[in-house]
Simulated scan of single mutants.
Amino acid sequence: MTVKATTNFSGTVSMAKGEERELPAGPVLNDLLSCGYIVPVDKEEKSETKRGNKRKD
């Protein structure tokens, strides 16, 4: 699952706020999601941002 860090954290997985990364399913992913340290990245949003076509309404 592609996720984005909501804050800086360090442990089994370390990420900086705003960093996006692919994490495998499992207990670490579940723990980070339940703590709110990471959020899933919408695949459509990610591809639009990469192309620079994100709408600014």
Rank of each mutant, 00 (worst) to 15 (best):
K46T: 00
R55V: 12
V28A: 13
R51P: 00
A25G: 10
E20K: 12
K46F: 00
G11E: 12
C35P: 01
V41P: 00
K50F: 04
E19G: 04
A16L: 05
T2R: 03
K54S: 08
K46P: 00
V41D: 00
K43Q: 14
V41R: 00
E22S: 11
K50R: 07
E20Q: 14
E45W: 14
M1A: 15
K54Y: 09
T7F: 02
V39Y: 02
C35R: 15
E48Y: 12
S47R: 04
N53H: 05
E45S: 14
K17G: 03
A25P: 03
T2A: 06
T2C: 01
Y37L: 02
D42M: 08
L29F: 07
T2L: 05
G52H: 06
C35E: 13
D57G: 14
E44Y: 12
T49D: 02
R55A: 15
Y37M: 09
L33C: 01
A25F: 04
G11W: 00
E48A: 08
Y37E: 03
L33K: 00
Y37P: 01
K43T: 08
I38E: 01
G18H: 05
R55D: 13
L23K: 05
P27I: 15
V28R: 09
N30G: 10
R55G: 08
D42S: 10
E48K: 07
V3E: 00
S14C: 10
S14D: 12
S34W: 07
N53R: 09
D57I: 10
R55Q: 13
L29Q: 15
S14R: 05
S47M: 10
V28I: 11
K43E: 10
P40I: 03
E19A: 12
E48V: 06
S47W: 06
F9T: 07
N53M: 14
E22C: 06
P24G: 04
T12S: 11
G18F: 06
N30E: 14
K17T: 14
S14N: 11
A25L: 03
S34P: 01
S10R: 09
A16V: 07
E48F: 14
P40W: 02
M1D: 08
K4E: 12
V39D: 05
V28E: 11
A25D: 13
N30A: 11
G36D: 09
G52R: 03
T6F: 00
I38C: 00
L29P: 06
Y37F: 12
F9Y: 07
M1W: 05
T2N: 07
T6D: 06
R21Q: 12
S34V: 08
T7I: 12
V39L: 14
G18P: 04
V41C: 09
E44T: 13
P24I: 12
P27E: 14
D42A: 08
L33E: 01
K56D: 09
P40F: 05
R55M: 13
R21T: 11
N53I: 15
A5G: 03
K43I: 10
E22I: 15
A16C: 04
N53W: 05
N8D: 15
R21K: 14
T7P: 01
V41K: 00
N8T: 08
E45L: 08
K56W: 03
R51E: 15
T6K: 04
E45C: 01
K4D: 01
G18I: 07
E45H: 13
K56E: 13
V3L: 01
L23F: 08
V13E: 02
V28Y: 07
R51M: 13
G11P: 05
M1E: 11
S10V: 05
